[in-house]
């Protein structure tokens, strides 16, 4: 079911396309969100919000999204920075409202163990399987030593690499 705000993803994509095509358009430039006065706050805002997921356009970070909710949330984060909150406190603020989903780096806890350690478990299993297979294979294969006759025959074949092919005609 499409919800009302989801359409703004498409709108923001269209706007992004329009911006790329006509970067100098004064009409669009006027709509850009004004930067806050303090560049330090802005830098922290970008650093924090790049690690957070926009809930509306889920493949975009909070820093990059042009969705309206992202605007609101950036405003909240800016306010929290100005209130002197630490990065961790700001992340907790958003997680308390929107869940771990907003974090691009999910926390390590029992429900995410499979996510964090699953790949290593699969890797360990694969290595174990490979080693077991190679061991079995090497014991099953006959020792590859040639008899003197075979060696001589091989030598004869290898020793005359430029011999003309047999004439079959």
């Amino acid at each position: 079911m499409t919800r009302s705000r989801l359409t703004s993803c498409a709108a923001s994509a269209a706007l992004a396309a329009a911006l790329t095509l006509g970067a100098a358009s004064p009409l669009l430039a006027a709509e850009a969100t004004p930067m806050a006065d303090n560049p330090v706050v802005e830098a922290r805002l970008v650093a924090i919000s790049e690690e957070l997921r926009c809930l509306v356009c889920q493949n975009e970070s909070l820093a990059a999204s042009r969705a309206e909710l992202a605007d609101d949330l950036r405003r909240e984060v800016r306010k929290l920075i100005n209130d002197g909150k630490s990065d961790a406190e700001i992340r907790d603020y958003l997680v308390a409202r929107y869940g771990d989903f907003v974090l691009y780096r999910p926390p390590v806890k029992p429900t995410t163990w499979l996510l964090w350690f699953g790949p290593f478990v699969i890797l360990a299993g694969a290595i174990f399987g490979l080693v077991a297979y190679l061991r079995r294979r090497s014991t099953r294969l006959a020792p590859a030593t040639l008899s003197d006759e075979q060696k001589a025959a091989a030598q004869a074949l290898l020793g005359t690499p430029h011999a003309p092919p047999k004439d079959n005609a």
Binding site: R3, S4, R5, L6, L55, V56, L69, D72, L73, E76, R97, Y98, G99
Partner: peptide
């Protein structure tokens, strides 16, 4: 809405 974790309506 933010306090309630609203990210779309309804």
């Amino acid at each position: 809405g933010i306090d309630y974790g609203v990210y779309g309506v309804p």
